[in-house]
Design a protein around this nucleic acid. Structure first.
Length: 287
DNA sequence: GGCGTTGTTGGGGA
DNA sequence: TTCCCCAACAACGC
């Protein structure tokens, strides 16, 4: 499940490889992955190059060198992957990235970009929930405005964060998952942030003390920041742009640890449903 | 073959 | 009007 740290890991990896390289061909194996007109899609991108890669929450935004009035939006949803493979171009120091997943292309490779260098970019998606969309710049702006404040940006201040909890009556987990309130947190990091702060995910937010909200703020920055440092979390599908796993899986305290002992107290991690999602927490040290 | 899975959306209720 | 919950949806592996 790519959340902010995973999508950021992909963004950084891709930016090292694809910027400025001419796209010579796009193979659309599954047209429904493209949510805008397919003819315009291929016509705009073939012969073009990516100028920069931006991100808002879990959404990737590719800016173009030509037709810069347009941008490409890409969402990985649950099982999307973006994997770059060198073709005939020279790689300093050889070929440093052993593939983690199946050979490419595989049966989930729905869109394949070919660059003039001979390199390929594969958009794989087992469940076909992800999408690509070519939109006008003003729609990019509109899209970004739908999102709430994002950890590790200028807007993400203690004051702004505190405000998110005023005049609200909802479960903490539900607030953390709400993309229009906070950008980029999904099921894994919501649970980990609640654990960090020692708070039950189903606490109603108007019962939280100023001290607890402070700790949640720190938790968002620490958990998300550390996860980015470790290149994200791989549960089953996630890989970075080079096809490698994320290492934050080794640092999870609650997610996927049902029945195992708490890293902080003598408790046992439990799994329940909160806000309609599988939720992992320690009933002993999360209050 | 029914269930579980999660990100997102929108219907409907308060 | 706004907020919030929850069902629905996507398609696959098990």
């Amino acid at each position: 499940m790519p959340e902010l740290p995973e999508v950021e890991t992909i963004r950084r990896g891709l930016a090292q490889h694809i910027l400025g390289k001419e796209i010579t061909h796009i193979e659309v194996r599954l047209p429904k992955m493209i949510k805008t007109d397919q003819t315009e899609f291929t016509r705009t991108l073939q012969g073009n190059a990516f100028h920069s890669i931006d991100r808002q929450g879990k959404l990737l935004i590719f800016h173009l060198e030509q037709h810069s009035e347009l941008a490409l939006l890409l969402h990985l949803k649950m099982t999307g992957q973006l994997i770059y493979r060198h073709g005939s171009e020279q790689v300093a120091g050889g070929h440093p990235w052993p593939p983690y997943n199946d050979e490419l292309p595989n049966k989930y490779s729905h869109i394949i970009f070919t660059f003039a260098t001979g390199a390929h970019l594969y958009f794989n998606d087992q469940r076909q929930f992800g999408y690509l969309k070519l939109v006008e710049q003003e729609d990019v702006q509109k899209e970004k405005e739908k999102y709430g404040i994002e950890p590790h940006t200028d807007n993400f201040t203690r004051t702004a964060f505190r405000k998110l909890f005023t005049n609200r009556h909802t479960q903490l987990k539900s607030l953390l998952l709400n993309q229009s309130i906070i950008s980029g947190i999904g099921n894994i990091y919501a649970d980990e942030i609640c654990f960090y702060a020692g708070i039950k995910p189903h606490r109603t937010v108007d019962t939280l003390t100023p001290l607890e909200i402070n700790t949640l703020f720190d938790g968002c920055l620490t958990v998300i920041g550390t996860a980015i440092q470790h290149r994200g979390t791989t549960i089953s599908d996630f890989t970075d742009a080079n096809g490698q796993r994320g290492n934050y899986s080794d640092y999870l305290h609650v997610y996927g640890r049902e029945g195992q002992s708490c890293h902080r107290c003598a408790g046992t991690i439990t799994k329940t449903k909160v806000a309609g999602r599988g939720t992992h927490w320690c009933p002993d040290c999360q209050k």
